[in-house]
Design a binder for these strands. Structure first.
Lengths: 195, 195
DNA sequence: TTGCCCGGTGGCACTGGGTGCCACTAGCGT
DNA sequence: ACGCTAGTGGCACCCAGTGCCACCGGGCAA
């Protein structure tokens, strides 16, 4: 058993880079932190950094692909009785149900993604996967093609609801689940407060 | 009056760069075209290219800021009697009402923006301005703050509707106005086809 | 033990986007 | 003729990201 240094498996190194990235980006703007500094802070070389994350932005996102897969599984397991929008809302709530200890990290991650222009831009590419998964779910439920108007519109507007919920959650003090439900309720009701 | 070369005002050079960019990006992937090639094709130097457009992506967007300003003016001029969603839909239709001769160009532009990952990412930053303008309009109409949930949700989901309409328009043969109305109708009705 | 394989690593050179700086030129009013 | 200004080109520079190669460690078979 080692004492001084860990076995340094792939996961451990990845996690160390993520932690270092979140910390540095909390101090300075995304663009003001170079990949060299990121690598130094994680105790690795610049070249190794780019072996673990394809871009600087990816270091903020963690294993987002796993979330997309989980969302897909949740949607696939929904009951036919449940309204489509409700099933999507429930899946979004479920996939964003973090243990309380992880919330500060999630807050910082989302703050960066929603406010730093470079990360905001990058997010579009990551969210495209989410949109595809949701559109496929809607297409399955409605019997039309995944690239037709209704599935695409439901996918994009539910993601808009989720994004808005994250904005509200960041600005306020409530729970993310409440904000998600509030946004989805507005959407499903055709915005009842607008007369 | 010159015969050989035009006066080369700022606008003329800008337009020439835009045309060259659209042409080159139609032939090859966005990433496969270097700024040097873009500059060469426009008959200017690389350095001058970046004086007219801050990034390669901006060359595709033309004068998008003018569109945002126009959208803002249209929204400011809407009647209080009109439902909020309808006013936004009308403004989107109006601002995207191009003369028929410009439609091929618009198609190519939107195809690039919606399919090329780098441009898709960049679009998020440009659309943030649109979202701000729409959210302010909704806030004015509803009397709440522009960064609260409903204005933000309406802004983001109407933009989702517009984006979906563009996707449908690109895929099909109909008119953009029809696709916009179809998407906004779904949204305003709370997705009636989903039971 | 020796030799081999293999995953993770670091170094290095290179491409390409984007910027700061400086020098040049054409037009234009005085 | 003078200076002013906007637009330009060239150059050096920073930084993200990539391809290539060399190295190192641990497991594994002979």
């Amino acid at each position: 058993m080692r004492v001084v240094s860990e076995p340094a498996t792939r996961e451990v190194t990845r996690a160390r880079i993520e932690a270092a990235a979140l910390e540095l980006f909390a101090e300075r703007d995304f663009d003001a932190v170079t990949a060299d500094e990121l690598a130094d802070a994680a105790g690795i070389s610049r070249r190794t950094f780019f072996r673990h994350f394809a871009t600087k932005a990816d270091a903020v996102w963690g294993d987002f692909h796993a979330h997309v897969v989980r969302l897909q599984e949740l949607l696939a397991a929904t009951s036919e009785d449940q309204p489509v929008l409700a099933s999507i809302c429930a899946a979004y709530v479920e996939v964003n149900d973090y243990p309380g200890a992880d919330l500060p990290l999630l807050r910082e991650r989302m703050r960066l993604i929603l406010t730093e222009p470079a990360l905001q831009a990058h997010s579009q590419v990551r969210y495209a996967d989410v949109d595809r998964v949701v559109a496929e779910h809607v297409a399955r439920r409605t019997g039309c093609r995944p690239d037709s108007l209704v599935p695409r519109l439901v996918a994009l507007s539910t993601r808009a609801a989720a994004t808005t919920a994250f904005e509200a959650w960041l600005a306020g003090e409530g729970s993310l689940a409440d904000d998600l439900h509030a946004a989805f309720d507005q959407l499903a009701g055709g915005f009842p407060t607008l007369r």
